[in-house]
């Protein structure tokens, strides 16, 4: 009931300007009508952390402005709950499902089912093995290549480093790891012995686990030069271990993430991260907003038949290249939109 009210209210608000003598440029009313009353579902891994909260800001703004209904399902990191929520959404037949899959495979079959049911699907950030209508997110292979190149730059034997690096993966069935580790190994092999991986472990996105592993790795490899992490939220654990070992100057930590100020720029400023590859979640939020508008105006006749990829441009940040616009903050994003 409340939802209905807000929809109606939002409808009035958007309709109001139309009552004024706004000229029709041939598209402005038509496009608004195409968005109105539609339903968009958003199914992230979980709500309540920087990335998923950032992405939804654009959709929330648009839902208000254009009068479509936005439903958010929060499976709170549970793959099974997520799959169940997805199955329910298919039953409810929204116009678009925006999904952030926790693993490469988990939603593959559900995405197909949604497409068969005629629902457009947009995949955010973590590419599923099945193609949806749109993918918005980084190319994880390129991302890991950039990280590895950066660490080779700092630690390669030819550059005067020890040539020894360690890798901390997140969840192994996640595309970040699946494609990332291939990229790291390929890049290391390409370097022709300039660099070697002495430790390669997974910490399941858990900072305290990362801390425990890194502490021992640092002890086992006193001449370690670089560390490659796969997500800022986890990599702070590695940074703490490096700091405790008193090796902030000798061990370079290369991290990656969505570019949230607290996680990214703050950690570069205080020296936790040497280099940070950002896929700018704020920009992705805008991409998502626009893609949803586009899909609602021009629904795919055969969902999934013509997948479109919008790989996010990557941005390398370190102390030298960091500027005021390098990072975003959730507060301003939520207040002013992407």
């Amino acid at each position: 009931m409340r939802k209905l009210l807000t929809t109606v209210l939002a409808g009035f608000l958007t309709a109001a300007p139309a009552l004024a003598e706004k000229p029709d440029d041939g598209l402005v009313f038509e496009s608004a009508a195409a968005l109105k009353g539609k339903t968009v579902a958003y199914l992230p891994i979980a709500m309540g952390f920087d990335l998923t909260e950032a992405w939804v800001t654009g959709l929330k703004k648009d839902a208000e402005t254009w009068g479509y209904e936005l439903t958010i399902r929060d499976p709170n990191w549970s793959v099974d709950a997520g799959a169940q929520a997805f199955a329910q959404l298919i039953q409810e037949q929204p116009d678009v499902i925006v999904v952030h899959p926790p693993e490469i495979q988990a939603y593959a079959r559900l995405i197909q089912q949604a497409e068969r049911a005629g629902i457009a699907v947009v995949v955010v950030s973590l590419k599923a093995s099945t193609n949806a209508d749109y993918f918005i997110g980084p190319d994880w292979y390129d991302m890991a290549v950039a990280q590895t190149k950066s660490v080779i730059e700092m630690c390669g034997k030819s550059k005067g480093g020890s040539g020894k690096i360690a890798v901390m993966q997140g969840v192994l069935t996640n595309p970040t790891s699946q494609y990332g580790i291939q990229a790291i190994e390929a890049t290391v092999a390409e370097s022709g012995g300039d660099i070697e991986i002495v430790s390669n472990q997974a910490a399941d996105w858990d900072a305290s686990k990362a801390h425990a592993i890194a502490t021992t790795v640092l002890q086992a490899n006193p001449d370690l030069c670089g560390y490659v992490g796969m997500w800022d939220n986890m990599d702070v654990g590695i940074a703490a271990a490096i700091r405790e070992a008193g090796k902030q100057d000798t061990v370079k930590l290369v991290s990656s993430g969505g570019g949230n100020r607290d996680s990214a720029c703050a950690n570069i400023e205080n020296g936790n991260f040497a280099t940070y590859i950002s896929y700018d979640a704020a920009a992705q939020a805008r991409d998502l907003m626009m893609v949803v508008r586009s899909v609602l105006q021009n629904p795919p006749e055969e969902p999934g038949a013509h997948p479109v990829a919008l790989y996010t441009p990557l941005r390398s940040i370190d102390k030298a290249t960091m500027h005021s616009g390098s990072c975003w903050s959730l507060d301003t994003l939520q207040a002013y939109g992407p």
Binding site: W77, V79, D80, A106, T173
Partner: peptide, 16 residues
């Protein structure tokens, strides 16, 4: 049955 439903295996499967 889970395999039939999702056709996927992940590190989260069956946890909890």
């Amino acid at each position: 049955l889970y395999a039939a439903r999702l056709n996927a295996a992940g590190s989260d499967t069956g946890v909890g």
